[in-house]
Design a protein around this nucleic acid. Structure first.
Lengths: 139, 139
DNA sequence: GTTGACCTTCCAGCAAGGGGAAGCCCTAGA
DNA sequence: TCTAGGGCTTCCCCTTGCTGGAAGGTCAAC
């Protein structure tokens, strides 16, 4: 298989596949003309990577997951550990975004959004920075 | 004020402040020895930027917000528009993360996490990529 | 033989800074 | 007066995970 074929199969852009070779995630063979030649197992790995990435795993996580996947003697605990860590990071990110969202929604609500210059959003952005310290100190 | 002072005031690292000057967000003066000299208004802007960034606005959003902030004749509608767009992006991101989270939590739950190699997480990562297409085609 | 679709490598860049080197500047203390 | 230290400067590379483009080789079809 050439890179185009495996790209179509895995759903990954050819550029991404070359990059994955670059960083050692896959090791396709080369044919006489210099083209990359992918085996079934390479296509399989790439699909695995695509799926892992889609779940938000970092490249380093993917590398570890792939190694575990290929290790017949792995302990599922190792896989679970990686997944749980990632789950935790996702939860943290969600919490962070929700907090932003709450503040922002509040401000958007308070803003008239008309032709006048008065704007609670700008007022908040302009004043909070010192008030926060103030509040902490005086609280 | 030197950069260290304004860094302490705004809570931004000196590196970040230099970067913000680089990309034209602030324009501190220079004293004879080459040191940056920040006015009150610069400190104010930097705090504004810090707060905007903390709410997740992109640098370009920040640039626009800052311009509106300084424009006495702005329409609050313009500010609101930027904030609403950002709110929308946050909501999309949260939705995306929640979907990842759901899948991942499901898999983690199903995994024994012991010394045995059998692992639903790996099984899922290994098979979903083609099944998905399959499902779409055969559905 | 010549298009046009592939494929190759390399270089540059995105966001939004962080790390660290090499080298001024300024002040305080012995 | 010298020296140590801390702060400041510029510069360039590193990060994550790719993406785009330029310059050029290859291959199958017409």
């Amino acid at each position: 298989m050439n890179i185009g074929d495996v790209a179509a199969l895995s759903g990954l852009p050819a550029k991404t596949i070359r990059y994955y070779e670059d960083i050692g995630l896959v090791k396709p063979l080369r044919s006489a003309n210099g083209y990359r030649t992918f085996r079934e197992s390479d296509a399989h790995k790439l699909a695995f990577l695509g799926r892992s990435r889609a779940l938000g795993f970092s490249i380093e996580d993917c590398r570890n997951l792939l190694a575990l996947y290929e290790d017949e003697k792995r302990a599922s605990a190792e896989v679970k550990e990686i997944a749980e860590q990632h789950l935790k990071r996702i939860d943290e990110k969600i919490a962070e975004l929700k907090e932003m969202r709450a503040t922002l929604a509040h401000l958007v609500d308070a803003c008239a959004g008309d032709h006048r210059p008065d704007c609670p959003i700008l007022a908040d952005l302009a004043t909070k920075q010192k008030d926060e310290e103030h509040l902490k100190k005086t609280a």
